[in-house]
Design a protein around this nucleic acid. Structure first.
Lengths: 186, 186
DNA sequence: CACAACTCAATTGTGCACAACTAAATGGCC
DNA sequence: GGCCATTTAGTTGTGCACAATTGAGTTGTG
């Protein structure tokens, strides 16, 4: 690669240039790991897009349908908890699913704040056609089942750690930039 | 738009509901793996959002800046190749970066179709502040460097496989739905 | 009962991803 | 030169993610 020269004597560097190279390396690494994740996510999305097109679903809509097929009927709140999505995302998405005739939304009579989402007959029967999807996706990954499960476990652990960290970062930032002992480079 | 209409139509789904248990299991599994990936991606995104807020960058904007910090100056096309993004995504994003004073866009005089993206002084100096980002992200994951690299490698392999599969799925679908030997369940 | 605090869904606004299209510039070809 | 396929950015439209806000409904407390 025609890697550009280090801008050695940059203006406001509080960091000695000798130490900057380690940071530079870290920056380059960051480009690779964060890029890898978003690229994988989008690649997955792309395959789902192709496979789900014949069902008339987008990938997030498919996720919603999977939860509904499993649980039958849920309030929007519960749906959001399962999928980590808020009403700002779910409301318009569910409206589109309703327009497609796959779900119905009804205000609960018990608690009028809550909206119950339930499958229509058409939505229920769509499951039959969706049964073919997972195999095609699994095949597309080229991973065997063990590998998929292992990756899944690793991603879940990552998600838990990231969510916990986000909570610490947001408010008063209990995070001290000083002691990077947690995940210091070896 | 249903150009790739179903060959068998509804006739291929005469599965009685009692028979479906293996496929049902697979469907539940699918919910877990695809959910895990999108959840991890969004969790990552969330941590980046918090950390990058003080730089005034979004996560995709940060990715663009990383590439520019590494390569100095690139046409939009090359930028898109590095990041797997097309002009539909990059054009407005770059406009926002330009409005923020971090980059300039100039039509190449050699080839007037091409637009050269280069860092402003402000964009260049932002790198100094960005050097702190990767450590904070790495710490947030709770993973050590080895684990990060391994995950990266796995995600890259996944991405390559998915991209290849997407290419096969889209046109004539060279895919054989019959023999699922590739990733058969145990 | 009255009232504050909370819950839930919806809405608004910003930004990203991608498909489909447009428009300008380029380069090969006769 | 004139013609045409290709390349390159940009635009439009749809859908998702998320922050912030709104507003109706509910609950706890005095």
């Amino acid at each position: 690669m025609a890697r550009r020269s280090y801008p050695g004597g940059m203006t406001t560097t509080p960091i000695p240039s000798a130490e900057a190279s380690a940071d530079e390396e870290y920056l380059r690494l960051d480009r690779q790991i964060c890029f890898s994740l978003s690229a994988a996510s989008r690649a997955f999305n792309g395959v789902y897009r192709v496979v789900l097109k014949e069902l008339g679903l987008t990938y997030p809509q498919y996720l919603v349908m999977l939860v509904l097929w499993e649980h039958g009927e849920l309030p929007v709140k519960k749906l959001g908890e399962h999928l980590r999505l808020d009403s700002g995302t779910l409301s318009p998405l569910l409206k589109r699913l309703e327009a497609a005739g796959l779900v119905r939304r009804e205000r609960s009579t018990q608690d009028e704040r809550s909206v119950q989402v339930r499958l229509t007959d058409e939505g229920t029967s769509l499951k039959e056609r969706a049964l073919r999807v997972p195999r095609r996706i699994a095949a597309a990954t080229g991973f065997d089942l063990t590998e998929i499960m292992e990756l899944r476990a690793r991603l879940d652990r990552l998600t838990r750690a990231l969510d916990a960290a986000a909570l610490e970062e947001t408010p008063g930032c209990a995070w001290t930039p000083g002691p990077p002992g947690t995940a210091a480079p070896s």
